[in-house]
Design a protein around this nucleic acid. Structure first.
Length: 562
RNA sequence: GGGCUCGUGGCGCAGCUAGGUAGCGCAGCAGGCUUUUAACCUGACGGCCGCGGGUUCAAAUCCCGCCGAGCCCGCCA
């Protein structure tokens, strides 16, 4: 990313320098100068769909938003490749791979019984989160798409141009082969066709699993009769049938450009697996040019999203899904992370850092509203990215929110204090932190959401220190921090605790008074107590905490270190 | 083997395209807010910018090499 100053100098509409990757991409898309801009993304529902795909969808969404701002017609589309054949199942499934290997995801039953198919189930789990993430692409299911006459026509074009496609395949796929491999590949391509058939007998597009796949490929196509032949390697069924009577699917590297052509896709991002030089995207563009006679979409390569420093892999069960994100963090934070990071950089989502990130995002939000004296740079960055990060159009005025870190503590006190009390205290905390008298309805209605997310975060991703809990014994290093005066203070408090029971406020006051009596700074007194109780230098309001733990327990605790 | 990306204080990152005294957040440390629900504010500490060469008056930045980490690269999708 270039210097933010460039944006201020050149104004917002006529950029000479790109200040952010969004500008670059949008400029490249605008150069196509078409009447309708279609920004597309796609995913095969091979199992639980992890949060990485949201990077692609959000990139599509911001491109669309920027185009619409320029007065263009722009839409987004999400292609669900549920017509793809099963190659493997995630470890968690109860379905038999033997039974379904090679069958389109749309033909595999939903083991949970709630959706039309296996593919639909996992796709729907993702799609349901779209409104919260502020995206609304037109959904296209390839299993349905292939039933249309328009798509069949694309297939027909490809079959008629098989020769050209063979040339492209040899050119691109065999590029790095040695002579022997190349020869072998070229020989094999002489009888190759760019499509497979769902066997009318066994229902498979291909046989075998990852590593040993044999497609039920078209073996012959007669352009005069429009008939295709095939011989299923799975069940042995062979036939020659009219193209309109079979369920056919183009091979991946051709399927993609055929869809681009059918919908006239202007731009489609691609993860690095597809975007690599000479990979399926480049092959697709070549097919677009030589088979369909048009340019194809603007290629936007992007790096993957990692979780906790590891790549996500559905097949290995390493998944973090959008739904989980929404349980612990606001969607706009995810959008922000996707936007602020350069496309070529891996984004590492670290769930344990969520509280910090949420609070940082809200500082960023205040920059947008000009609160807290943002620098020019901060303000410019916020002006570009904040509206794109928010799921909906930003409100006129800043809406204060309960601090996430604060919510971590208070959400855990709900069980003890009751929801009403906690809610009141949260309201008080927001008033105090933002120095306001009256809270707006949006602020109030947001508090329970934040509490619920914080609570879920603590239980799923919080470390021990995030949980309000006490160790069995006072750790040695804590004992060592105590000086004579600290001990004197604790001894005095010990006597108090053994006397008449006191309410929260009385205890809180007693800490201050006792500290002053022996000439100790109150601050130190609190630190000493928190260290003793929870090995931290600060913590929840002390009076209630002491009563929560019980005067007897606290007394014992003090005695153990005196 | 071919290719891409990254390597900057304990952790996470910015700065590199257009070379000019090394920055931010978090954690840790010290203090402040004369009653603190991990909030907030201030301060100090902390880095031979992976290693080695080169270009230059000047290199985290440009060039070459190396080391380390990660990823992609048959069919299939």
């Amino acid at each position: 990313m270039a210097n933010l100053r460039d944006i201020t100098m050149s104004g917002r509409d006529e950029q000479e320098f790109s200040i952010h990757w969004i500008q670059d991409v949008v400029d490249r898309v605008l150069a196509r100068d078409v009447d309708d801009y279609l920004i597309s993304a796609g995913k095969s529902p091979s199992g639980r769909i992890h949060i990485g795909i949201l990077r692609e969808l959000i990139v599509c969404d911001v491109i669309k938003r920027r185009l619409v701002e320029r007065g263009k017609n722009a839409r987004t589309m999400f292609v669900i490749d549920d017509y793809d054949p099963v190659r493997s199942f995630p470890p968690s499934t109860s379905l038999s791979l033997d039974k379904y290997a090679g069958v389109p995801y749309s033909d595999v039953p939903d083991e949970f019984g709630c959706c039309e198919s296996y593919g639909a189930h996992w796709a729907n789990e993702l799609i349901e989160t779209f409104p919260e993430f502020g995206i609304d692409p037109k959904i296209v299911w390839t299993s349905k798409l292939y039933e249309t006459s328009e798509m069949l026509e694309e297939v027909r074009i490809c079959l008629r141009k098989t020769e050209t496609i063979r040339d492209i395949m040899v050119e691109y796929v065999a590029r790095d082969f040695n002579e022997e491999q190349k020869q072998q590949y070229t020989e094999g391509m002489k009888t190759w066709f760019p499509a497979s058939i769902v066997c009318p007998n066994c229902g498979r597009l291909q046989s075998g699993v990852k590593g040993g796949i044999e497609p039920n490929r078209v073996t012959e196509y007669d352009p005069n009769t429009d008939e295709v032949s095939f011989a299923c390697p799975g069940c042995g069924h062979a036939a020659t049938l009219p193209l309109s009577d079979v369920r056919i699917k183009l091979t991946w590297r051709v399927d993609w450009p055929a869809k681009w052509h059918l919908f006239k896709v202007t731009c489609e991002p691609a993860g690095k697996d597809h975007a690599v030089k000479g990979g399926s995207y480049d092959t697709g563009l070549e097919v677009s040019r030589r088979v369909f006679g048009w340019k194809g979409p603007v290629k936007v390569p992007y790096e993957w999203v990692q979780i906790g420093g590891r790549d996500m892999a559905t097949s290995e069960g390493i998944v973090f899904i959008p739904k989980t994100w929404l349980e612990i963090a606001p969607p706009e934070l995810y959008r922000f992370l996707m936007l602020k990071t350069d496309l070529k950089r891996t984004i590492n989502i670290q769930p344990d850092r969520i509280p910090d990130l949420v609070d940082r995002y809200e500082r960023f939000e205040r920059s947008y509203y000009g609160i807290d004296n943002p620098t020019d740079e901060e303000r410019e960055l916020a002006e570009l990215l904040y509206p794109l990060s928010e799921a909906e159009t930003p409100s006129e005025h800043f809406i204060p929110k309960l601090s996430y870190k604060f919510a971590i503590v208070t959400s855990q006190l709900e069980a003890l204090l009751g929801k009403e009390v906690v809610l009141e205290r949260c309201k008080e905390a927001v008033r105090k932190q933002h120095d306001i008298e009256e809270l707006c309805p949006e602020t109030i209605s947001h508090i329970p959401i934040r509490l619920s997310r914080a609570r879920a975060w603590v239980s799923e991703f919080g470390s021990e220190r995030d949980q309000i809990q006490v160790t069995e014994e006072v750790p040695q290093d804590v004992r060592q921090t105590l000086n004579e005066q600290d001990r004197e203070f604790l001894a005095t408090m010990l006597e108090l605790l053994k006397g008449q029971p006191k309410n929260d406020e009385e205890l809180q006051t007693a800490v201050f008074e006792t500290a002053r009596e022996i000439g100790m700074k109150p601050r130190r007194a609190f630190t000493v107590f928190y260290r003793l109780l929870i090995s931290r230098k600060s913590g929840p309001r002390l009076g209630p905490l002491l009563n929560l733990l019980g005067p007897d327990w606290v007394a014992q605790r003090i005695e153990s270190i005196l």
